[in-house]
């Protein structure tokens, strides 16, 4: 079952007097439960794909389906509600709220869910902090935590709503190698345990090696698709201006 489908998505924006084409007719289908890396040099369009899947950016043309919802034509409030319930975000710069403690940061996305009372929220926060092994740091504020710990808080925050998809924009870029590997291992473990779909952008080979699906992006188009089976990558090159490119396969 596809959890994300992009059909002929094009994204253009104005930079000064020029129109820049960030994505050019991209079509994708992403299976539920995959651990997918979107790779490419900076400016290739990988962040734009991630933003469009995350419903924080809208395509200039084309159709987008996320977790069974046709996203095109939804208003900002509808998109906000979709993000709140189906998508978790992990950022390169962690983006924790500096005035809140680790536990409060994790709790934040739950605050707008009216069906959860205080007790439910506390329980879930506790569960998530345990998952990322930060229970001891619940009362610490972000500036009292190391980079790796902050990113763990961010992961807990992304997972606390039990989303279908977690999007991570270069999640290890601001971390040293060892910490980065720890974070990747943690995400991989969660992916296996909770069957949550992870989609992340990266240009780090180590990160790509941790993935089981790969989309290579260059100049706003999909250039290659990869599926890993029994430790071996099966790579399909996609010709420029090919018709619908597909990234498929069972996890």
């Amino acid at each position: 079952m596809s959890i994300v489908v992009l059909e002929h998505v094009t994204k253009e924006y104005r930079l000064g007097e020029h129109m820049v084409r960030a994505l050019d007719d991209v079509s994708l289908s992403i299976e539920s439960g995959v651990f997918l890396a979107i790779a490419g040099p900076s400016g290739s369009g990988k962040s734009t794909i991630l933003n469009i899947i995350g419903c924080i950016d809208t395509p200039s043309s084309g159709k987008v389906h996320v977790a069974g919802h046709d996203v095109s034509g939804q208003n900002p409030d509808q998109l906000a509600s979709l993000r709140a319930r189906t998508i978790g975000f992990i950022f390169q710069t962690f983006n924790l709220l500096p005035v809140l403690t680790a536990a409060e940061n994790v709790e934040y996305p739950l605050l707008q869910m009216e069906e959860l009372d205080r007790e439910d929220r506390k329980e879930r926060v506790q569960e998530m902090l345990e998952l990322v092994q930060l229970s001891k740091y619940a009362k610490h504020r972000p500036n009292q935590l190391s980079g790796g710990q902050r990113q763990r808080v961010a992961i807990a925050r992304a997972l606390v709503t039990k989303p279908d998809i977690v999007l991570a924009d270069e999640p290890t870029a601001n971390l040293d190698h060892k910490t980065g590997e720890g974070i990747l291992a943690l995400m991989r473990e969660i992916n296996r345990k909770l069957r949550t779909t992870f989609i992340f952008s990266t240009h780090d080979k180590k990160v790509i090696d941790a993935a089981d699906r790969l989309i290579g992006v260059e100049d706003g188009t999909v250039r290659l698709l990869g599926v890993r089976k029994e430790g071996q990558w099966a790579i399909t090159n996609v010709a420029r201006k090919a018709p619908a490119a597909q990234a498929q396969g069972k996890p």
Binding site: G54, I56, P76, D77, A80, S81, R83, A84, R85, F89, F91, T93, N95, L97, P98, Y108, P109, Q112, R157
Partner: peptide, 16 residues
């Protein structure tokens, strides 16, 4: 600004 963007990405509406 980044904090506001984060909160909105996490699902806060404009009204919130």
């Amino acid at each position: 600004t980044a904090e506001i963007g984060t909160c909105m990405a996490l699902g806060d509406t404009r009204r919130t």
